[in-house]
Design a protein around this nucleic acid. Structure first.
Lengths: 307, 307
DNA sequence: TTGTATGCGTTATCAA
DNA sequence: TTGATAACGCATACAA
């Protein structure tokens, strides 16, 4: 049983293709008699009609597709796959609520192709955990025909919206939660070097008091220098690793950058970021798509912290 | 700068649209002079041409799109979002390797619409954690024009491929690992009731020795009846919860149905399922798409267990 | 209030 | 070896 088209409906209803299209799309500038409207609507339902988005996209030059490109960790960790689930799921849900469909793609290797974005004529893109290097090849080619939002990444180009946790407030709050400013910082390795540098700087700690996680051994050596000192851990999965291997003797607070505080033991002091803050983000994306307005460039959007 | 089309290339190269199309698609039945081929290819590159998939899809009636529909847990748990990440990521990667793009969609609510599948003319679909009820509304309408693979779900209809862990072997192996057959079973709540029943049956345990997790309290009551007994836990995130709240005095083995053994403390006995087994699954999907061959229906595909 | 006709960018058939 | 053209399904300017 072939899929029903507008033409089929038109034939069955004894009206023109145009009329059917007007009715299905509820075109305001056209006045349609209630009679034909009802008739057409009924037949459309009977035939289980759904619009062919390939055809519509071709005509309208809008696909209703949003891409979520997840850049895999350059140095892979056991929890690498878990880090951005909440973000991905939340973005998908919010996009869906606005009527978009989401193409999800993992980006790997060191010279990734971004052809998909242009082949599929995506209306907008979220890029998660991008490093500057692999990204520059993007901006060069596919340019900025569509709104691009960059998550957890520091991209020099002013043409992108940047979404990131509000580390500044977080460090402050963490300090009060710990009773005093932390003596050391352990952080998960983001792909984006500039992003890492920014975090380090915001922490207000010296380089030798900061550890960027790469392996268990390196971490142990580092932590041994700070027994009984107060510290901060960025990312709950990493923190979980620490709590598990070293017990809870270390007095640490955790910034849950993956929105998964639940995976931590109950007693561990932690701060989380608002998933709700993605709502205005997606709204902004939608706005950019609708009115092709890129005047509000270079926006920074901070996920607010809750404790 | 508008996107270059085949027409643009044709004009720039001084050849016809057809010729360009032949060259770009490397059509074997056409013989093209090396000269024009080179010329066209060069110009295509200069103009940064990429094919417009909306147009191609419209013409070919094939979109190169595969859907992954994730049914959200009916009873939500803290780890609900984490359960199927590995599956999702693996499927995306494998589909990508075969040239497909993936539309990811979470399904929620009790009368979900599957219009997306038909509107976007997906070439195939993976359904994860579907319950029979919400699924019957699918099969009725969108029928079986495309291959459908169902993961962790027991659907009566013989028209779908079913992918699930090899519980039978797992229970056996778990028994030997524990030293003897387990006395009790704690399992995470799948959406699909029939699937749950099957697992229960395969475990060989009486109903009162099986607990389907819903809340902490219920679980504690259950476990208190089995202190010092050997048990099996299905799903590592659930197991983690148990280990954390009750310590490790319980002698348990864990079936890591989420492919995340890493999140368990090192000493916990566990079994995992092969993510590699998704490769033949996706291959089969691809085969079904290519030759529209649905003769091999009602296939059961079991993820093999490794310890 | 409804219908006719064109074009979106491809692919593929047929002709040259 | 190459080119003209129809068709895929839809939206819409313009006619009626």
């Amino acid at each position: 049983m072939k899929k029903a088209t507008i033409k089929d409906i038109a034939k069955a209803a004894g009206v023109s293709i145009a009329t059917v299209s007007y009715i299905l799309n509820d075109v305001k500038t056209q006045s349609i008699s209630d009679e034909t409207r009802m008739k057409v609507l009924k037949i459309a339902q009977q035939l289980h009609y759904v619009t062919n988005r390939s055809a519509r996209s071709l005509k309208l030059q809008k696909t209703g597709l949003i891409g979520i490109l997840l850049f895999r960790d350059l140095v892979s960790q056991p929890w690498s796959d878990l880090k951005y689930v909440k973000t991905l799921y939340t973005l998908e849900r919010l996009c869906g609520e606005l009527g978009y469909h989401v193409i999800f793609m993992q980006v790997d290797g060191d010279a990734p192709s971004y052809d998909m974005i242009r082949e599929r004529n995506l209306d907008g893109v979220f890029l998660i955990n991008v490093d500057q290097e692999r990204f520059s090849t993007v901006s060069r080619f596919f340019g900025f025909g569509i709104p691009v939002f960059v998550i957890d990444s520091w991209i020099e180009d002013t043409l992108f919206h940047k979404v990131l946790p509000d580390f500044e407030s977080s460090f402050r709050i963490a300090g009060t939660l710990l009773g005093s400013a932390p003596d050391f910082l352990v952080m998960d390795a983001y792909n984006n070097a500039e992003f890492v540098d920014t975090i380090k700087q915001l922490s207000g700690l010296d380089e030798e008091r900061i550890h960027r996680y790469e392996s268990k051994e390196g971490l142990d050596d580092f932590l041994n220098k700070f027994t009984d000192r107060k510290g901060l851990v960025i990312n709950e999965f990493l923190a979980n690793e620490i709590v598990r291997t070293r017990g809870t003797q270390d007095r640490i607070a955790v910034l849950c950058t993956s929105h998964c505080p639940d995976i931590l033991p109950a007693h561990v002091v932690n701060l989380s970021y608002e998933l709700n803050d993605y709502k205005p983000v997606v709204g902004m994306m939608n706005g950019n798509i609708q009115d092709a307005d890129y005047s509000n460039h270079n926006k920074f959007i901070y996920l607010s912290v809750t404790s």
